[in-house]
Design a protein around this nucleic acid. Structure first.
Lengths: 226, 226
DNA sequence: TAACTTTGTAACAAAACTGTAACATTTAAA
DNA sequence: TTTAAATGTTACAGTTTTGTTACAAAGTTA
């Protein structure tokens, strides 16, 4: 859920300050102290937001900004310009270069944070679907779909939860009691044998014909995904 | 091509100044000198950008801002806060209320213009590429029309909003609670079963005979556009 | 105002899921 | 090999979840 923020800034104290504080807010922060590295890294990492120093030893922030904004792949990444100069022409030039906001050094961290939040709020929620895999089994939690060997299989709610629990710690053996606690959670007034039936259903659904068994029975101990 | 800008500001000289200059830049400007009229007009006119005075005779700018940002129909309209106070708390509060930018009075017109342009540039996608498609379903947000296989279908307001929300993250499954939060936003004192009924209506309207089902039911999880 | 649209809810129908019991099969120890 | 315990399998009834319809209240428009 937390956003990736990239900083391009040559003054180390400022990097330290920003990184320390953004880290504390739960953002993932990376940075570079020059423009050339910065632009390369940004194109590789595709951060959710960029803090860009106006003055850099090699390329100016404005150039980086223009460069990014004219490329479709990067133009939607919001950019905040950091500038030491308070002159108005600069502010205007900075924004016209395509930056989404600017802030004048020295700035206070609360203000920077407010601007960062405001821009992140505007930018699209990322469409990364978190998928978990085990062997040739794949769970897409976003779409709540499960695949075995690229063919979708249908699981009922309990089977889905059960599988999701197993896949958290593959190969680990869980007793029926543990499964009741963790998957059934509330109403634990359920026979332990019920689990056997659900295991059977889960097996039936995820075992396409010809594929190997993924759920191991450990006699007098429980089951595991293995 | 030129954007509509709405100003809510009680000091007449400032309105005159801004309107005169924005007019000259080719923007269509309307305004009101109090919060109550402003909020009503904004909801009617749906401007592309709002300039909002921090201090107003009736409702505060922050209140207006919050009011607009929590309603799906208006929350994407960028808002610039105009504030006479330079204190930092205010800046932060302004941005946290959901405003996209702020500017401190007295400001120079070039600076205001630069900010206006920067925000309009960001929101452009929703103004220009204004049709969204998914499979053979097409939504034209400008005209608020929806097509399935090139034939127009009629959707009620809630159905339209619901579909619009789904299409933001296609294939993703949303729980009834999430849908309530995001589509109903305000009155969340609504039965979750109500959603089922709206889903049914939406399905009925977008499923021409012979076309495939686009809304997936995920038992005990929710619905998705898929 | 009257006609029409939209909205939320309740009530019932249909479908999917769950737990249990009963019986079958496997496993391990005697 | 026999036996008992553990697990696999199946069928079924009860429960939960979702689909569908109708209706009244609230809101809009002519």
């Amino acid at each position: 859920m937390s956003a990736n923020i990239y900083i391009v800034e040559d003054e180390e104290p400022i990097i330290t300050l920003i990184k320390y504080n953004l880290d504390k807010e739960g953002y993932k922060v990376s940075y570079s102290d020059n423009g050339n590295d910065g632009i390369k890294e940004i194109k590789k990492k595709l951060p959710d937001l960029i803090l860009l120093d106006w003055m850099l030893p090699d390329i100016s922030g404005v150039e980086i900004c223009k460069n990014l904004k004219k490329d479709n792949r990067f133009k939607d990444i919001p950019i905040i310009m950091l500038t030491a100069k308070g002159e108005e022409e600069d502010k205007v030039k900075g924004l016209n270069s395509g930056a989404d906001d600017y802030i004048t050094k020295p700035f206070s961290f609360p203000e920077l944070l407010a601007r960062v939040k405001a821009l992140l709020r505007r930018s699209k929620p990322s469409v990364i679907s978190d998928t978990v895999e085990f062997d040739d089994l794949k769970i897409d939690r976003m779409t709540r779909r499960v695949y075995r060997k690229d063919t979708e299989v249908h699981l009922g709610p309990k089977e889905y939860e059960l599988l999701n629990f197993f896949i958290k710690n593959p190969k680990r053996v869980y007793s029926r009691e543990q499964l009741l606690e963790n998957v059934w959670s509330e109403n634990i007034n359920v026979e332990t044998r019920t689990i056997d039936v659900h295991i059977r259903r889960l097996r039936q659904n995820i075992n396409l014909k010809g594929s190997k068994e993924l759920i191991r029975t450990v006699r007098s101990a429980g089951y595991s995904l293995d």
